[in-house]
Design a protein around this nucleic acid. Structure first.
Lengths: 170, 170
DNA sequence: AGTTTAAGTCAGCGTTGTTGACATTCCAAG
DNA sequence: CTTGGAATGTCAACAACGCTGACTTAAACT
């Protein structure tokens, strides 16, 4: 499997960036960076009775208003019971509105209320600020590489959801 | 804060990679990619009574053998009680050995046992395989950008731990 | 001798994930 | 019309893994 020599020259092409040591660095970079990635929203959410799951739900409802519960489920990759618990509190607190579908009345379409938009903006601003700072420090070429590697790291399902969102957005 | 126009040309320099839309893509890429990043080890761990926290502990004990509990605490960024619960099971199951310090007998130095190394290798192989595939698909320049952005996304403490590990390694 | 530090432990709590079982509502096919 | 399946929601129970607070033990520092 892992021979520790995958980075030696092979067939005349330098593969030094594929050594186990380089891969380990990538793994640790992901670990530490993800902590930074979630740190700012987590701080804000901790003051309320909310957690990261609420943030994710709010993010994707804002991103795709009117999405059904099932669709949100497949994007978030959790069980319906887990999501339902989160949605129940958000709806109860007046941050999310659930409208019965017109063509299929079994479906519930989810929307952010004014209050929900306010929280979404607060959380997004914090997270974007860090991302913007990181992008700025690293430069445009680095950002392109960053996105390429992340996309290559996704499962096929996730990549489909990601690219679909990318097309829909702006 | 976020005006949605930060990507317009400014001072003759193209900052199109800093639009809110670009930042949002980066945020969603991180979210989806992290799921892929943890998916393979999670599958393996789910078969045992272990979780992600056990993986992290094993990873860094392997990475810095003989590390003290306090040091591991600051790397992982959790409370002593949280880490202790994980360490107790790992020591009890014979995956980790805790040796009393020779110079300072209050300290406990942590090491992987043979069994611990076996699990570490299994988990690492799975995680590295995905990282290797992603790196290979994206290419060396993309990998460099990936690491640059991630490092810029870390908190100062994390960046210090990350770069320190990077120097120690290889 | 007194204080601080490292580590471990116990009790309790919150968020977020999981399964399993079950009710409701609605659409669609027989 | 009845029946089966799909979408949704709810209840109960549980596990992983964060957290705080309080407390003990042992060793080191001052």
């Amino acid at each position: 499997m892992s021979n520790g020599h995958s980075g030696q020259r092979f067939g005349g092409e330098s593969l030094l960036f594929l050594t186990d040591e380089q891969l380990r660095q990538g793994i640790e970079a992901m670990f530490f960076a993800y902590r930074g990635f979630t740190a700012d929203p987590d701080r804000i959410l901790a003051e309320m009775a909310y957690g990261r799951a609420h943030h994710r739900a709010i993010h994707f409802i804002n991103r795709a208003p009117g999405t059904t519960v099932n669709n949100l489920l497949s994007i978030l990759g959790v069980t319906k019971q887990s999501l339902n618990r989160v949605l129940r509190t958000l709806i109860g607190d007046g941050l999310v509105e659930s409208r019965v579908g017109t063509v299929d009345k079994r479906e519930r379409h989810l929307f952010l209320t004014e209050q929900g938009h306010a929280l979404e903006a607060t959380l997004s601003d914090a997270q974007r600020a860090r991302m913007r700072s990181a992008f700025k420090d690293a430069g445009p070429e680095a950002v392109q590489g960053f996105k390429q590697v992340l996309e290559a790291m996704m499962d096929a399902d996730m990549r489909r959801a990601y690219t679909k969102m990318r097309e829909t957005g702006s």
